[in-house]
């Protein structure tokens, strides 16, 4: 890995973490959602730095939609979406600190103990990567993706059912 690549990777990594912090520092729900979007976009940029063009662009594209939809839900359900009333975004601080600390420790343990194979010497071209991803998705990983899709569809239908106000029926 060249020095420039490493620098860019570190820059986008730090940007991702910083925007993640901003999510909780702001009082505005929309700012929070957009900060999460830019955190995820920075991760997409990290994919691009690592020459995974398809995955990077896909990440950058999908998150724009998802976080925007999340923003409107946050505005709908929170009592102070603009953050004008200085509502506190944090709660259960002791529990959150412990959960965050343990999560970090586990993540670091996994990073240090996992047997990484080292960087790949030769990165396949972007069109070759797309072809390989397609074969993977329509082959070995197809069942995982199809079952995930089915679960998301079920959740969507269930969420819609919950959201629709019950109609008043004539009581016999």
């Amino acid at each position: 890995m060249s020095l420039a690549t490493a620098l860019f990777l570190a820059f986008f990594g730090i940007a991702a973490i910083w925007f993640g912090v901003v999510v909780f520092r702001t009082h505005s729900m929309v700012r929070s959602a957009i900060a999460l979007l830019f955190s995820q976009t920075a991760i997409g940029a990290m994919f691009l730095v690592m020459q995974a063009e398809f995955l990077g662009v896909l990440q950058i594209m999908m998150m724009a939609t998802e976080m925007s939809v999340m923003a409107i839900f946050m505005v709908m359900f929170m009592m102070d979406p603009g953050g004008m009333g200085k509502m506190d975004m944090t709660h259960q601080k002791r529990l959150s600190l412990w959960a965050g600390g343990i999560g970090l420790a586990v993540a670091l343990a996994v990073i240090w103990t996992a047997g990484w194979q080292g960087p790949v010497p030769e990165v396949p071209g972007a069109d070759e990567q797309a072809r390989m991803l397609g074969r993977e998705l329509l082959g070995r990983s197809m069942f995982i993706f199809e079952s995930a899709a089915l679960m998301i569809l079920t959740a969507m239908i269930a969420a819609t059912m919950v959201a629709i106000a019950p109609q008043e029926r004539d009581v016999p």
């Binding site: 063009e53 398809f54 662009v57 896909l58 950058i60 594209m61 724009a64 071209g125 972007a126 069109d127 797309a130």
Partner: peptide
Amino acid sequence: LAIGALFLNA
């Protein structure tokens, strides 16, 4: 780009 159409979408 090899993934131009996807990039346009993004």
